[in-house]
Nucleic acid binder design. Structure first.
Lengths: 259, 259
DNA sequence: CCTCTTGACTTTGTCCGACAAAGTCCTAGC
DNA sequence: GCTAGGACTTTGTCGGACAAAGTCAAGAGG
């Protein structure tokens, strides 16, 4: 089947649906289509691209999955920037599939949470401090009520807020995949280990105070302690750090895309 | 339009193409469909799901984009696990779109590369040491030849290898998005800063030696120095840490999916 | 006997037309 | 003025159709 000689490059014709997807993606990426702006109806796209509606729809599916466009409540298509959490949840799922262990999660969480705390010291604003205080209130209330799920949720939020306070979006993104799998275990620990919640509250308190005082050393120290508390609690809850993150998580992941 | 009372949940009917995609995704995720196995032809899927081919195709597009299935060279569909680098490249692109700065990248790279070195000390194998030595040879050859592109490429590989040597897949994954944007700048630096390559070679040498000697302190120290060398080199190359990662990168990213 | 061509068959990419369900918008009646 | 319809739009789905490209096996020619 080879030509007599390899004189010519193989001619590549990308499928039309891919060209459609790429064209729209370019509009979004280049900023000509701003997030929130309507992309247009399928009929319009059919007219503009001069292809069949089926073809347009296939392109739309790919873009949708890629997070470049979204359906509004009215089912219409709107441009949007690929959301972090969407990508993060995919990453988390990949981690589950590869059966990573809690030890692996822990090591990374430790490195990234401490880095978050360090950078938050330098960049935190009064508004973020305020939100951390609110969060602390929520956590104390949840602990008081003995609501482990709510406490765990708020704990996740706490760490997200600290990362956000760092002003480093790369950090915020990088920590997300591991965090999505790591922090939900707080619920489990708080259920089984009575001294979990009070220790958590104390640690958060110290972290917030350190951030307010711009005390790098304390922030680093208490975030590290807080994570090591988790490690101890995880063991006391009868779990093994070397056990793989179960598939069960796959179902209860974030409220992103179904499955 | 509201019902008289909010007694019932709104009934949600997911579109058929989504159900198709989810069903196939479940097969892959659950391991019933192993990576590399054929998913079946569109006609077969039409029969199995009892929906129209257009519907199946829309579902396929989404899965394809999600990385759960892939077209073989024969255009047929084969299952596959979402590859890290595919997700990573999407993440990297998201970072570009959000116009993160090199300073943000640097902070995260510092934290994660040092963590990689630390954990590699505990887990490195002779085989990985061997591969690092090979890589070192490649880098020295590239430097000798004055080939900045090749050198930069090999430098990326070096850091990837160290992360791999850590035995921590979460770490390997978490560092990828930032790395994809961060390390290519090495080329730029090496072009402009003559003392760049020799310093890089010395640092890598010390890191490899520290890993071989299982010397945690030295590994940490030299990885940190190496990264700070980058920082200095970046400035000496006339670039500003606070400038956003340009869109230009979006084109020359990894050889993943075309933008 | 082996190689090469050819032609039937399969599969994908694309198109056309159609229709029901659900959302939107305008209008007429109270 | 507000509400209930009704017309129109848009999406989701279906059925069928055909060209291009790949696969495979049988037959022609050495």
């Amino acid at each position: 089947m080879d030509a007599t000689q390899g004189r010519f490059e193989r001619i590549q014709v990308a499928p039309a649906y891919q060209l459609v997807a790429e064209a729209i993606e370019r509009e979004v990426v280049s900023g000509r289509l701003l997030p929130g702006e309507p992309v247009g109806t399928e009929a319009e796209l059919v007219r503009q691209f001069g292809v069949n509606r089926s073809t347009v729809r296939e392109g739309i599916r790919a873009l949708e999955e890629g997070g470049f466009i979204q359906r509004g409540p009215d089912r219409r298509l709107y441009a949007c920037l690929p959301r972090y959490n969407r990508l993060s949840s995919r990453m988390s799922r990949a981690l589950i599939l590869h059966e990573v262990t809690f030890r692996e999660l822990f090591s990374v969480a430790l490195a990234l949470e401490v880095a978050s705390a360090e950078q938050a010291v330098a960049h935190i604003t009064d508004e973020m401090l305020e939100r951390l205080e609110e969060n602390q209130g929520e956590i104390e209330a949840a602990a008081q009520a003995g609501d482990a799920a709510r406490l765990s949720e708020a704990d996740s939020t706490f760490h997200h807020l600290v990362a956000k306070a760092s002003g480093n979006r790369v950090l915020l993104l990088s920590r997300e995949p591991a965090s999505l799998l790591f922090f939900p275990t707080t619920e489990l620990i708080c259920r089984r280990v009575p001294e979990g919640p009070p220790r958590l509250i104390v640690a958060h308190r110290h972290i917030i105070d350190a951030l307010r005082a711009r005390d790098l050393e304390q922030a680093r120290l208490w975030m590290s302690r807080h994570l090591h508390d988790w490690e101890r609690g995880f063991a006391r809850a009868g779990r093994d750090l070397d056990e793989p993150v179960e598939r069960v998580y796959a179902r209860s992941l974030p409220p992103g895309i179904a499955v």
